[in-house]
């Protein structure tokens, strides 16, 4: 009897906390989706009515389109570069036991752990010391640095699941290294590389800290644009209240852009809400 209660209470406790955590994980995304269909001006939940009006507004918001295009282009370029460099590096270090491989592995992983904002600042200083003005190129380089660890990690993981016997078979049947790589290794590790590339793309598309420092005035990025709107108390991302706040957005994020490097200051000190 005591035994049953013990087991029951344990599974009940685990179950309750797990369900609570899962609800917590889903709720924000679900709420954003629902609120984006609101017909009202405020962010009430549940919304007073439902409409597609904010998606219509979004359709007209050229600044956001521009920012989204920039984000897409930079993310695509950074992902391509990450896959190229990261897959090669993953292949190089995956099966090596040398101390240098371990050191390289720590180097490749460090952009993941170190604060991206500090890296953004240092990259800006580095490029300005070199006399390179911030441009889409510097942005792509910066994004590649913070995204490449995902590709390396996933390539290494995929390679560790690859049965080396297959490669030996291929070699003993007379295939050279390049042929084996093309026909055996690459097809088998491709899902891992693509998974890494996907995460790299998402994290580049979503990156704020590096973009804050490395973009130029002409290269507006979507996450920054959408958060700048929020910084002016204009919750926009899910297509809400955009038009009405346009003037305040302009005041708070375009004015600094016009004056060059001091970009949209996230005036957290005065979130006018």
């Amino acid at each position: 009897m005591r035994r049953d209660w013990d087991s029951f209470s344990f599974h009940l406790a685990i179950g309750i906390v797990a369900v609570l955590a899962l609800v917590l994980l889903v709720a924000p995304t679900a709420i954003v989706i629902i609120v984006s269909f609101t017909s009202g001006f405020s962010l009430r939940f549940p919304p007073p009515g439902y409409s597609l009006r904010w998606y219509g507004e979004l359709w007209d918001a050229w600044q956001l389109h521009f920012a989204a295009m920039n984000s897409l282009k930079v993310a695509a370029a950074a992902t391509g570069l990450s896959i190229l460099l990261g897959t090669a590096a993953g292949l190089g270090i995956a099966r090596s036991q040398r101390a240098s491989a371990k050191m390289l592995d720590s180097l490749f992983m460090s952009p993941l752990v170190l604060p991206a904002l500090a890296f953004g600042l240092s990259a800006l200083m580095f490029f300005s010391a070199l006399g390179m003005p911030v441009s889409p190129l510097t942005l792509i380089i910066g994004h590649t640095v913070v995204c490449v660890p995902y590709v390396v990690r996933n390539t290494v993981a995929a390679l560790s699941q690859l049965d080396p016997t297959l490669l030996e078979c291929s070699a003993s049947l007379g295939a050279d290294k390049v042929y084996t790589f093309r026909r055996i290794t690459l097809p088998l590790i491709r899902p891992g590389i693509l998974a890494g590339g996907f995460i790299a793309f998402m994290s580049s598309f979503d990156n704020v800290p590096v973009s804050l420092f490395l973009r130029d005035a002409a290269t507006d990025m979507l996450p920054i644009r959408s958060s700048a709107i929020r910084w002016c108390a204009c919750p926009m991302w899910c297509a809400t209240r955009w038009r009405r706040c346009r003037s305040s957005t302009r005041r708070c994020s375009n004015a600094p852009q016009a004056s060059g490097r001091t970009r949209s200051t996230p005036s957290a000190a005065s979130p006018c809400r």
Binding site: T29, M202, V208, P223
Partner: peptide, 17 residues
């Protein structure tokens, strides 16, 4: 799911909540 949505969107949802 949270990894697939933008951190800005996730944060914004918390403001609504």
């Amino acid at each position: 799911l949270p990894l697939l949505t933008s951190v800005v969107v996730r944060t914004f949802a918390w403001i609504v909540i």
